[in-house]
């Protein structure tokens, strides 16, 4: 028999608990990406001479495979006497990788702020920090929330890469089940369906969020 329902139900709880690891990795990784990305984008504006360095750094990170970056962090830290467990190293790599993408999103958001807003802030003698915190960021962030949301979903779909350094997330768990039982159909397909369901739901959420934001700015 090609598809065994009993077997599928049997492995479901194991996969469900592994899914929690995947989701944890996603949330921690994205928190890192979103905050580090914002820092990169702000530093770039606040300290103009860093612009070029940050561009090159972002280009470097975006031009090389995440999998290699995961391996690199996982194996290179011990060389400096810091031993990171696989989950930490993997999530760190994912977070840094997506921070590069997020920083470009923030940058676009900042670029869309009308010059007059900066000039008015200068005219009111606001400090750079206050200008960012109270004037620029509140205007720049809402329009880019959907773009950030898309990266959250993209990041989530890359968590299976953590299986390459044996983090017990969904994919690794499915592979272990497969190699122990010689049945790959059910675990792999269930993993695929889980990702599909999560992606479709998030896509719908992002769309309604977009609608909400559009209405808000129309007002």
């Amino acid at each position: 028999m090609i598809w065994d329902w009993a077997f599928a139900f049997e492995i479901l709880p194991v996969l469900a608990s592994a899914a929690i690891v995947s989701i944890e990795a996603t949330l921690i990784g994205f928190a890192l990406a979103a905050s580090l990305g914002l820092v990169l984008a702000v530093v770039r504006i606040a300290v103009p001479w860093t612009g070029w360095t940050i561009s090159v750094l972002v280009e470097l990170i975006r031009s090389t495979p995440l999998l290699i970056q995961i391996f690199f962090l996982y194996f290179v830290f011990p060389k400096f006497g810091v031993v990171l467990d696989a989950f930490t190293a993997g999530v760190l790599a994912i977070g840094i990788h997506y921070a590069a993408y997020c920083s470009e999103v923030y940058r676009a958001g900042f670029d869309n702020i009308h010059r007059g807003q900066w000039e008015a802030s200068v005219a009111l003698n606001l400090s750079a920090w206050t200008t960012f915190r109270d004037i620029i960021i509140p205007q720049a962030i809402p329009p880019i929330v959907p773009a950030l949301g898309n990266y959250l979903v993209a990041l989530f779909k890359e968590t299976p890469l953590l299986s390459a350094i044996a983090v017990l997330e969904l994919m690794q768990t499915a592979k272990i089940i497969g190699s122990e039982t010689f049945r790959y159909t059910e675990p792999m397909t269930l993993v695929g369906l889980f990702f599909l369901a999560m992606s479709l739901v998030s896509a719908a959420l992002i769309r309604s969020l977009e609608g909400l934001l559009n209405r808000r700015t129309m007002r």
Binding site: I2, K157, E158, T159, P160, L161, S163, M171, A174, K175, G178, R183, Y184, T185, M188, T189, V191, G192, F195, L196, S199, L200, A203
Partner: peptide, 23 residues
């Protein structure tokens, strides 16, 4: 389009590699 965008590349790779042979 929905299936290939909705699941990740590695899942698709593994599915074709490990599951197709079972068919």
């Amino acid at each position: 389009v929905e299936i290939f965008r909705g699941t990740s590349a590695l899942v698709q790779l593994f599915w074709l590699f490990f599951v197709l042979p079972q068919f």
